[in-house]
Design a binder for these strands. Sequence first.
DNA 1: GTAGGGTTAG
Length: 619
Amino acid sequence: MSIGLLLHPSSPPQIPPPTTTSTGPPSFSSTAGNHHRHILSLSETCTTISHLKQLHAYTLRTTLPDETATLFLYGRFLHLSSSSSFSDVSYTFRIFNSIQQENHTPFMWNTLIRACAHDVSRKEEAFLLYRKMLERGKSSPDKHTFPFLLKACAYIFKLSEGKQIHCQILKHGLGKDVYVNNSLIHLYASCGCLDLAKKVFDEMPERSLVSWNSMIDALVRAGEFDSALEMFRETQESFEPDGYTMQSVLSACAGLGSLSLGAWAHAFLLRKRGFEVDVLIKNSLIEMYCKCGSLRMAEQVFQTMRKRDLASWNAIILGLATHGRAEEAMACFERMVENVKPNSVTFVALLIACNHRGLVEKGRLYFDVMVRDYGIEPALEHYGCIVDLVARAGYVSEAIDMVMNMKMKPDAVIWRSLLDACCKNGASVELSEQIATHIIEDNQSSNGSSGAYVLLSRVYASANRWNDVGIVRKLMTEHGIRKEPGCSSIEINGVTHEFFAGDTSHPQTKQIYKQLRLIEEKLSSIGYSPDQSQAPLVDSSREKECSLRLHSERLAIAFGLLNLPPQTPIRVFKNLRVCNDCHEVTKLISKMFDTEIIVRDRVRFHHFKDGSCSCSDYW
DNA sequence: GTAGGGTTAG
């Protein structure tokens, strides 16, 4: 039988077939060894699972030289069937199970474990296989086994299993293997155990670029951006950075919100040769520039991309959204759908765009379109945006209905949006109490509920229930809960200056407040009256004095106006969500001072490691 | 004799 005839017409190889020793006289080659070599070479040219199955069938009818050769060939089949281009794991299992148990080699076990580690729905099976491998007692795990197993483990964030595997690694004497250790670093970083990742890294006898990259990535994930950049500097003493390194570096710059560092990293990339600045790096650049407040540079990167993927579109839409440029974000979405199918993240970005600008109608529309036209189930994040949007606009009962109809448990962010709306819209004290209870119960041990306590005390104060106000304050003290202050930062000449609401600690405070008065006078002259409700909780005498100067971002803007040369763009970061009112007043100030002012929110402030910032917020 | 480690936004 001719294997050439069996293969699909599109298949590349048409190697003359061998004849088997069992099916008649040889035509041009007669040894089993030749068959073996022939099948092996054919296996290298398989491009579809169908080719492989034909080759497998052919092999079953063929006599091979010995058992070792047969097992080697089956190992190859296992590997092929589970490789990313074929990825027919059930077929891999069928081949594996067709081989007698005592003939399963470590290579076969490893291949099967790898197949499971790469398959989204089979991660758990990787552990079962490992256990079986040990139980059968014929094959010992080796240096190839553990990276696969740890990958599966990291994917499902199983720390305790990971630690057990770590023990197994040591038991089998593989604690020095660089691949195994890199996988351990990745695992511990995925589980949020920076200390353990660091320990593995520090104790490694040998490190590769991947070790450094994994460690830098671990630091970025943990929000230790400065340390990540420091490690990047160290890396270069031994290795040339690659694309992975640079993506982590860009993330670190974005995390710090430092445009100067980010621009430096960009220049480094352009200067560097030897690796391609691909879509993923470009996406990181867009994200970095957006997070560092330079939408202009982000747009430039986006515009000059020859190839864009889903993430590129999402990154730019999100950037526009968080900068309060909702119309452009929506226009970008329209262009996007002509090229790429949007996903759930796209709609988060669109809802954020609406949220930042108080576009309730549009927000409702996108929420419906997402479900109806794209079949995307709303996730917690979508609810977080829409509930906040609707609630802020004063549609409290609609927001409550939404929360009640959610398929998942609302988180503290959502409850807080509701509570905030209740406070502003004079909802009943009982309702506010109920909502506050949800938040406080969900956040017993963390500081995430500080907003709820503050809001609740406001509700009681407005109802003249001063006793209850006292009780709330006492509870806060007892639970060690601090108020979460509004905080904004601005980077000037590579130095980050930070301001809190009503802050007077800056050495230039006098001039800053003078500048603020000037801004306020100018604003009043054009009839603008700042929205009092947006002011953070401060004592009432100061609130009356000047609402404008109490906002942290406005202190930062005033500082920027004082210290930057005219026409220099002013970029301010806020630890909390930038609200519609802020976008509005920023636009006015930009116009009055003929300069570009951008205030944008930061997901997390790296110096609030103790969780005192709104890390759990989506914006 | 086969293979192996490190990314996707809120």
